[in-house]
Nucleic acid binder design. Structure first.
Length: 283
DNA sequence: CCTGGATCCTGACAGC
DNA sequence: TGCTGTCAGGATCCAG
């Protein structure tokens, strides 16, 4: 599931159990995820105190006392599970190792953080904290959608002359960071834009209008994630998957949510991925 | 440079 | 029950 809001929710859930504690042991149960783990990863993590958890796009950065940062990407199916319950927040424990528990961080405060990823599209790497932005996975990523550098002029110029569908353009992490299939579909619905519209042929005004809509869609989802974090006190230690109501994503054949719209949500495939939209509300 | 398709991997689910 | 086909929240690589 993880798009920017889910990754941010995971970061917020992990921060209180990791920041200020020490990784006393890092269990690395396989040599790779999408790519090989960095050399001596377990040794470079062991004994390090965790200073801060940050997020850039869909990546989590764990700043360590050594001056290195652990970069984590959840891919399509990556999850973080907290057990050991150092803060008394989680009722259930992660009882026993499960299939696809690839990396486990044992913290000095008693917490265990398990990275589980069936499809292994996730990734981990170690990099120098000071030059993190230059890492190959981060270097060409576009502005943070919730930051000040994602503004109307940026999006207008980034899409000018582009022949690709607006859907594909918004998924391009170099244009704007952190959006994925769900929130692009949702933002286009709110903007009334058909996903197949050529990006470069949409008026500047309508492109500009997308910017606050994208910010709003993501902010609402982060808010929902925050609520789900509170709910985890009664649920379990799993972070990264939470209930959220979508207007179009996954709603093929269901009625459009726009008042008085008689249509049902359509699904089309664009560059191999499903797009959901309303044929009346989005043009 | 721009664009779209194939690709990595496992699991869930529908239909027969 | 078990088989087959489809689909899945990502992002890179490669061909045209």
């Amino acid at each position: 599931m993880p798009e920017l809001p889910e990754v941010e929710t995971v970061r917020r859930g992990l921060a209180p159990v990791m920041e200020g504690s020490v990784i006393i042991k890092a269990e690395v149960n396989r040599p790779d995820l999408r790519w090989p783990f960095p050399a001596r990863m377990a040794e470079r993590l062991t004994g390090q105190d965790v200073k801060q958890l940050r997020r850039r796009s869909k990546y989590i950065l764990v700043d360590l006392g050594s001056g290195e940062s652990l970069l984590v990407h959840l891919g399509m199916s990556g999850r973080m599970l907290i057990s050991g319950d150092p803060l008394g927040q989680f009722v259930h424990d992660h009882p026993a190792p499960e299939k696809h528990d690839h990396v486990v961080f044992h913290m000095a405060n008693g917490a265990r953080i398990t990275f589980n990823d069936p499809r292994r599209f996730g990734a981990m790497d170690l990099l120098d904290t000071a030059t993190a932005d230059g890492h190959k996975l981060l270097a060409s990523i576009g502005p943070e959608p919730l930051g000040n550098s994602f503004h109307e002029a940026h999006l207008v110029s980034a899409l000018k002359g582009r022949n690709m569908p607006i859907k594909s353009a918004l998924l391009d992490q170099r244009i704007v960071a952190g959006l994925g299939n769900i929130y692009v579909c949702e933002a286009l619905y709110r903007a009334g834009l058909h996903p197949a519209r050529k990006a470069g042929r949409i008026s500047e005004g309508r492109i500009a209008a997308l910017v606050p809509i994208i910010k709003e869609v993501l902010a609402e989802a982060i808010e929902a994630g925050g609520s789900s974090l509170k709910d985890f006190r009664q649920a379990d230690g799993e972070l990264g998957y939470f209930q959220h109501n979508f207007d179009v994503y996954g709603r093929e054949g269901e009625p459009c949510n726009t008042p008085d719209c008689p249509k049902v949500i359509q699904r089309i495939v664009q560059s191999g991925r499903s797009s959901f939209y309303c044929s009346q509300c989005q043009r």
